[in-house]
C-alpha cells in the first residue's frame, strides 16, 4: 500500500504523480522500489479523479476480505 500512500502525498502537495516523484518519495521512506509497480500505479491513476476515488467507499462486501495479516 506504500505506493498508494506515496501517490496520495504527491496529490496533496500538488506535485505531479509521475514515476520520478513516486520513486523519490518511496526511496526517502526506505522502500525498495519496484519500477513496474510504480509504472502500474501511474498508469492506473491516469484517468482517475483522485479526490473522488479516495472518498468513494470501495464498494466491497462488508466484513470484507480481511486484510492480509
Amino acid at each position: 500500500m506504500e505506493y498508494v500512500y506515496a501517490a496520495l502525498i504527491l496529490n496533496e502537495s500538488g506535485e505531479e504523480i509521475n514515476e520520478e516523484n513516486l520513486t523519490d518519495v518511496l526511496d526517502a521512506a526506505g522502500v525498495d522500489v519496484e519500477e513496474s509497480r510504480v509504472k502500474a500505479l501511474v498508469a492506473a491513476l491516469e484517468d482517475v479523479d483522485i479526490e473522488e476515488a479516495v472518498e468513494q467507499a470501495a464498494a466491497v462486501p462488508a466484513g470484507g476480505a480481511s486484510a492480509a495479516p
Binding site: M1, Y3, V4, Y5, A7, L8, A40, L41, A44, L45, V48, I50, E52, A53, V54, E55, Q56, A57, A58, A59, V60, P61, G64, A65, A67, A68
Partner: peptide
C-alpha cells in the same frame, strides 16, 4: 488515511496485497 488509500486502490483498480481480495470480491460481485 488508510481508508482513503484503500478506496483509491480499489476504485483505480491498482491492486495491492491488502486490496487484491477486495478487487476480486468486487469483480465477482
Amino acid at each position: 488515511a488508510a481508508a482513503f488509500a484503500r478506496n483509491l486502490s480499489v476504485n483505480a483498480v491498482y491492486p495491492t496485497e491488502q486490496t487484491a481480495p477486495l478487487l476480486i470480491s468486487k469483480a465477482t460481485g
